[in-house]
Design a protein around this nucleic acid. Structure first.
Lengths: 192, 192, 192, 192
DNA sequence: CATGAATGAGGATTCATTCAT
DNA sequence: TATGAATGAATCCTCATTCAT
């Protein structure tokens, strides 16, 4: 296990504080001073690690997105069968969205908001490539509908975000059965 | 056609300006002064129609959501067959999301953000009832999977928001064929 | 009894509202809009009767001060003995301060504050002349200490304002006995 | 002499500026921006030392009141004879009111206005206790009239405020002789 | 006379950012 | 590297005042 330098610890605290504050109050109610306080750090210290507020949010976004995709593909192997691979990725993603709730909420907010600048958004999408490749193969093997990646993502993956938010807001609890049903719906919607 | 009073015209201009500014910059970068300027009105005038910024956004949300659902159900008749009814509603929703892009973007941002307060959010959901009723009937008639409404919505409706945003951000154009495909995916994911 | 015109009724309502609001919240928290509302009148209507806020307050001050002095001297006759005259005036003033509490509080606030402009203040003092004349006579007759009018007023009259405020703020109730005691103190402090 | 920190210097400047501005224009015409400017400080800096405008005024009131009472009792010793003690206190108070004119004017305005909130007002009164104790003893020893403290204060002390304001407003200059006369009036009004 | 709607100027307060230490 | 104090620029909002009706 890597030792974290003092600086890394602070940076991490800042990232975490940003996520939490933005989640609970939105970008507009997450002032730097509060972020600093929540991270037990002086406001000035933030600027040792980030250029400005926009940069802070961008970097947090990129890192969380990276953590998300890493998690998603951890047990995936490109040589797997299409359906098996998809199921494995899907379930990891579901896992992430339901267990790393804070991170996932943050991403949802970033993805539906002009909060993040375009370059960072692009940067965040990059790591999704293995899934797109899998779909490509699926289409070639006739196992997946020959749809645009956008449509595939919209039906196969994105619904999980909606469910996560619904769950976070209360009024709906996603259990194991629901999850299996959701997976079936996801697969139904893209399988040939 | 109803005559609009001078006040209604101003209020409408404010609503429109709010949508546009929030869409392009987010809540945090949509100051009252800009909203006023865009609506050709003094900042003080806003407060004749809305209590404060939160109230402004809440009301805009509720109104846009109402317009959305009214549009969605316009050509729907509760006596229709389940699949026919669903298709009609779905296509109206798709229409709205792709044509009334500004309004739809605004809703997406509100729905994924702590921008709107809870009561207003609840208020906004109300009018969705006819769709939930249709699904209920569909489940009883064995035509729709016996899933939670949340899951049905996540797969049947919500993907359209993702596609709309993707299109708005560029890099993807949703044409007639795509739309039909998307509908098929939606229906596949919830039909029994 | 004189009939009041509609205009006079409105003006009176405005005067009364001003007194009440300024008393309870101070000049700085008595906006024209609230004064108007409390007087059941449009804000614009105020400007039919008064030039601006300063003028409103000035005029209210002058009128209340006039009412105060009129009340004070009502049963006084310049031909009375000095002590008798003083007692009569003093008790009328005490009456006013304790019964017309609102008006008296308003005067106290005006007199200790840069709320009123100088000319209006001078105007308000004018009607006090009979008391000053009485004192003059008292001094000549060797019945009253040969002190500056300011000092006489400070000791003979002004304490009533302090007592009134203390009573209004609670924690102290001025009864008949107190009043007699106070009068004795007043007279002691100025009599030769 | 204690060294003042940079912060204390700024705070003091703010307190002083507040007194001066409120004196000359009243609470309602003493905007934070002017206070800041007069203290050679940014508006935002005020909020490092005070929570908000109300808090600023409250704190200034409490501090000035404390300075006032400290000054008043400086050369007083509880073991003094009643009359001697009273004279000493009275003259110190007179001194303060006539020399520390700014502070005294500020207190007068606060005491006759809903400018200060109740808790702060109570806080301000606390330190007056030694005078009340002296009066208590005076009453027991049969040297002072058995009157309510409110009445005693109204006649023995409060007139000084009136005289101070009269002097500040011009048209009347309080010299040594006046002062002695005033003291005699004060004592006459409360002595048995 | 009377008004409700409208507003520009200004008020309190906050915030991202900097700087001296 | 780290900070607390400091700030100018903005932000939300209010208010005295006006004007078309």
């Amino acid at each position: 296990m890597a030792e974290l330098t003092k600086g890394e610890i602070k940076r991490n605290a800042l990232v975490k504080a940003t996520i939490e504050l933005v989640n609970n109050s939105g970008f507009h109610a997450a002032p730097m001073s509060k972020i600093a306080k929540m991270a037990n750090v002086s406001p000035a210290t933030i600027y040792l690690y980030f250029e400005n507020k926009q940069d802070l949010v961008n970097q947090v976004y990129i890192e969380v997105k990276a953590a998300f995709t890493e998690y998603a593909f951890e047990s995936f192997d490109p040589k797997m069968e299409v359906e098996e691979g998809f199921e494995i990725i899907w379930k990891r993603i579901a896992d992430f969205k339901l267990k790393e709730c804070e991170e996932a909420m943050f991403l949802a907010q970033c993805d539906n908001t002009p909060m993040i600048d375009e370059p960072s958004r692009q940067q965040g999408i990059k790591h999704l490539q293995p899934l797109l490749d899998l779909w490509e193969r699926g289409k070639n093997e006739g196992k997946i509908k020959p749809l645009s990646d956008y449509i595939l993502y919209a039906y196969a993956i994105n619904p999980l975000s909606f469910l996560m938010i619904a769950q976070k807001r209360g009024g709906f609890q996603l259990n194991e059965d629901h999850l299996e049903e959701a997976y079936q719906s996801a697969w139904s919607s893209i399988k040939k």
